[in-house]
Design a protein around this nucleic acid. Structure first.
Lengths: 171, 171
DNA sequence: TATTGTTATACTCTATAACTATA
DNA sequence: TATAGTTATAGAGTATAACAATA
């Protein structure tokens, strides 16, 4: 999964979890949060993402979409007219993965490839009308699904948290 | 990858990116950040995690470790004496994946399985002496590698950011 | 000579179901 | 009847190298 550890000793949650005696079995895997890696930022990132992904998948499943396709369609549905290369860089996926993702969406009539007038090697990916519709619909679904989760963050911290997350994602 | 979008229109970075005319080609895939999904928390989470993972892998590679194995070994090297089931839940991995991860580490003499006195079906995973050493060494490596990245977060926000991330990871 | 999209291929990861031994 | 670990297997995701067209 992933790692990195703050050297500091165990704070908050830890103390709450350990009762005086026999705290070995009763709570699921919660006891492990007292472990150093339970504080490891990269591990937290990985776990939060794992939860996020599985939420996404179940939210999008009914629309025949998956997380990847959703992001790609989202960009294609904007007025950005991204090149496959740009999608590869932005979505952090291999160019060849982009190809098969697009092939899929294209066969379903959701996007199409257009020649890039500036560079005849390149192709820009744009959403069809149907693609626009699905992009919108699936976005609504996802927003709804994730709102519940992110509302767990105190209102006053939310904006700042996303800002920082963005700076990490951009780095 | 993943998603969720703040309905709000484009803030900060967006305005900065778009110049008056022809902003189509010159900057890599940076233009796509103005897209709605560039603000999507779940997407940011996914991308940040992707970057984190690849940092991890290159930091741990020289020690013959990968991110997953590292987390597992980290828990096994603590005094938590986790059961395989607990590891599965904690690391958000399928029980069968835990098996092969442990098989691997066991063959390398880094961990061993011990019977759980409380439940004869279960096995607890503990690090050997060699495992302890490697856990420590690899942790040092990872901390060093990630410190550079996380120091990108302003000192005064860092603690709070990790707290929130933890709450999401625990949810 | 380098880059874009593409194909093919091999490899890792993930998800599922079935089995055993205990509970 | 349910749960812990295990095995086998199939499917999805990932990484690599090579190729044609264009820069």
């Amino acid at each position: 999964m992933s790692q990195h550890t703050t050297k500091s000793s165990v704070p908050g949650v830890a103390a709450a979890t350990q009762t005086t005696e026999d705290d070995t079995k009763q709570d699921g895997g919660d006891r492990l949060w007292v472990t150093p890696i339970g504080l490891d930022p990269a591990f937290l990132l990985a776990r939060a993402n794992a939860l996020s992904i599985s939420r996404m998948q179940s939210a999008l499943g009914s629309l025949g979409m998956k997380a990847r396709a959703y992001s790609l369609l989202g960009v294609a549905a904007s007025d950005a007219r991204p090149t496959q290369r740009e999608l590869s860089e932005f979505l952090q996926l291999d160019p060849s993965q982009i190809v098969s993702l697009i092939d899929d969406l294209e066969q379903r009539g959701l996007v199409r490839r257009e020649p890039d007038p500036r560079d005849r090697r390149a192709k820009v990916v744009v959403a069809t009308a149907a693609g626009q519709d699905l992009a919108e619909e699936s976005r609504k679904t996802v927003v709804e699904s994730d709102n519940a989760w992110f509302s767990l963050i105190p209102e006053e911290d939310r904006e700042r948290f996303f800002e920082i997350l963005r700076s990490l994602a951009t780095a």
